[in-house]
Design a protein around this nucleic acid. Structure first.
Lengths: 212, 212
DNA sequence: GTCTATAAGAAGATAGAC
DNA sequence: GTCTATCTTCTTATAGAC
């Protein structure tokens, strides 16, 4: 970890505070105190409070995009693909679900970003778009591609891969939202997550007859 | 519609404003303007701003509880039960999903309450508990009971009814959150909802072999 | 119950010394 | 780049006339 400049520290602390209480409820004085300077000094680094918020958003978005790029590479590299086309075992699917869940629930930046977007999503179109991209469209698109590959390879039953992605991902999303509000329920929720994943696997694996 | 007293109108307008912008971002002056009086007059009806917020919450919660009581009665009355045990047709399930979705998306009070709780859910434990009860625990419990009945009656395949409820409801919840931010996507989203419901029905109806 | 006037304080932001 | 001092505006809330 490099030592942060004051400008970077402002973004770090502001991100934490905005995620906890929302933009309007955080004063510039609070941010300054968290950084360890006086409020007027903030204005040497950023023009105003809004510009601090924009910097937080930009930083978080950059991290998200980098992360997604890394995940997509994982999903496409030869070793991972090989494992997928070997057949999708129940344990692999359980592990995939738990990993996804664990990252979103415990990565500090991911948590702060999610809380911030949750609180501020109705403030303007840009924030609404970011929320939907990150927590709906991107996961559904990405996982839809995975399921499409698995169908093509004959590993899982035929069906609409987009809908499969919805049915696989939406429970993860709902359970995540529970844990964001009630961290003490994590164990119970992770148990449900695992049951969901196993049941999902049983429903969609080849050999489970479809009759419609 | 009865004509509202000033005290009632304050709650109505405050509910709308708090849901749009959150508690902190709404000034008592705005509430007063929406009601058509001056700010100081508000204090003849409520002790302070927080008390207005509490009144909004109480009113919304009362409406929710009444609504749920009504729905549960529906789910338990003899005609509805008879229809369920006759067998759960694909069209019935599609209709159930769409009705649930439509109510949550277009009922003014339901929308305002959901937005309010979404924005303020991290402010205190009471709000977090209300959110989780309404949008996670209550739907999962209620639908879990329905699926348990359907399994008992041999209408659908054996399995954990709680997990079935999660897999049926979570996609509805996710799609709803998309429409809250992007009303213009309603058509596309309702289409996905219908596809989800049909695929869910196909997966769980009797005759779809389970092999695990 | 509604108004005008106003108090009391918090918040964002600037000026200018160091 | 950081500070102290200060300005200005907004916000909650009260006092008191009608």
């Amino acid at each position: 970890m490099m030592k942060q400049t004051t400008k970077e520290k402002i973004v770090t602390e502001a991100a934490r505070l905005f995620a906890q209480k929302g933009y309007g409820a955080v004063s510039v004085d609070e941010i300054a105190k968290a950084v360890g300077i006086k409020a007027p000094s903030l204005y040497k680094h950023y023009k105003n409070k809004q510009e601090i918020f924009d910097a937080v958003l930009t930083e978080m978005n950059t991290r998200y995009e980098k992360n997604m790029a890394a995940v997509q590479m994982d999903g496409r590299n030869s070793r991972a693909d090989a494992a997928l086309f070997d057949g999708l075992s129940e344990e692999q699917l359980v592990s995939l679900g738990k990993k996804l869940f664990d990252f979103f629930l415990h990565d500090d930046y991911a948590v702060n970003f999610r809380k911030l977007l949750t609180i501020e999503q109705f403030q303007d179109n840009e924030l609404a778009a970011m929320y939907t991209k990150q927590y709906a469209d991107d996961p559904l698109t990405y996982q839809g591609m995975l399921f499409a590959l698995l169908i093509q390879a004959g590993v899982i039953r035929d069906g609409d891969p987009q809908i499969m992605a919805l049915q696989f991902y939406a429970p993860i999303y709902l359970l995540l939202s529970i844990c964001d509000r009630h961290p003490e329920r994590e164990m119970e929720v992770v148990k449900m997550l695992e049951q969901h994943t196993r049941q999902f696997h049983a429903l969609y694996q080849i050999g489970a007859e479809k009759n419609d």
